[in-house]
């Protein structure tokens, strides 16, 4: 137990995580590409036309994975922020900062693809229903987190302030998820959930899940890339960064 704890803490230090992350990135890229190609192929070439929405429903293969990731990344970000707040581990705050821009991007994509889906199907680019409004608030939470951290020079204080904002904002996630159940919304209910059988044809479902996996792997790869940059930036005065960087220069 003690030994395992030690191991965990070993990788929790930026110094040992930096090369580890570097080694993991290509693997996650490969997985993202494999799942992405398979999911898009199934979704755009194999999955049948939808009875209600014709070919327009194919936006689902991007919209739902983006929306899932927008919420999931926020939860992971808040998790790391909380760990950093409680245990004062340096790497946790860096992880939270590395995840925020990707989460914001997926939130934007969920809103964008949603608008492009809503216009032909519902008849409106945007409506102020509970699902859409709460997702927009998620976007502002990400932007607020990023802006707040950018506004504070001392990284430790920036991490702390960001963590508090991130944790307060967690309330919004169940609101987004359950909004279609709790209130009358124009947005339809969930097609896929843990509590009931999915209401989608099998090929459509498989394509959507593969795309979601691809987005997930992409997020990990991109967050690891970004966290490496953050580590270098914040630890630039340490001896190991000096060695690391000079070694990289010699290798080139």
């Amino acid at each position: 137990m003690n030994n395992r704890l030690l191991n965990w803490f070993k990788f929790a230090s930026p110094q040992s995580f930096f090369p580890l992350a570097g080694k993991m990135i290509p693997g996650f890229w490969a997985l993202a590409v494999i799942f992405g190609v398979a999911g898009l192929y199934l979704g755009f070439f194999v999955a049948p036309t939808d009875a209600q929405q014709g070919e327009g429903y194919r936006i689902i293969f991007l919209h739902v994975p983006a929306a899932w990731m927008s919420m999931f990344i926020y939860l992971v970000m808040a998790f790391w922020a909380a760990i950093g707040l409680i245990y004062k581990t340096r790497l946790s705050g860096m992880m939270a900062s590395a995840l925020a821009p990707t989460g914001a991007m997926f939130t934007f994509l969920a809103l964008w693809t949603g608008a492009f889906w809503g216009k032909p199907m519902w008849g409106a680019w945007w409506v102020w229903d509970a699902r859409l409004t709460s997702e927009l608030i998620l976007f502002f939470l990400y932007i607020g987190f990023i802006a707040l951290q950018a506004a504070i020079d001392d990284p430790r204080r920036a991490d702390k302030a960001g963590a508090i904002l991130a944790l307060v904002g967690v309330v919004n996630i169940p609101i987004i998820y359950f909004s279609v159940k709790w209130w009358n919304t124009l947005h339809q209910g969930a097609s896929v959930s843990l509590t009931k059988a999915p209401s989608m044809a099998q090929t459509m479902l498989l394509a959507m899940l593969l795309c979601a996996l691809a987005f997930w792997m992409y997020s990990v790869a991109v967050a690891l890339m970004r966290v490496r940059g953050i580590i270098l930036e914040r630890e630039r005065n340490s001896e190991w960064v000096k060695q690391q960087v000079t070694m990289a220069a010699a290798g080139r």
Partner: peptide
């Protein structure tokens, strides 16, 4: 895309 080209490709 069955007439939904703008919306699908826009996404």
């Amino acid at each position: 895309m069955g007439g939904y080209g703008l919306y699908v490709w826009g996404s």
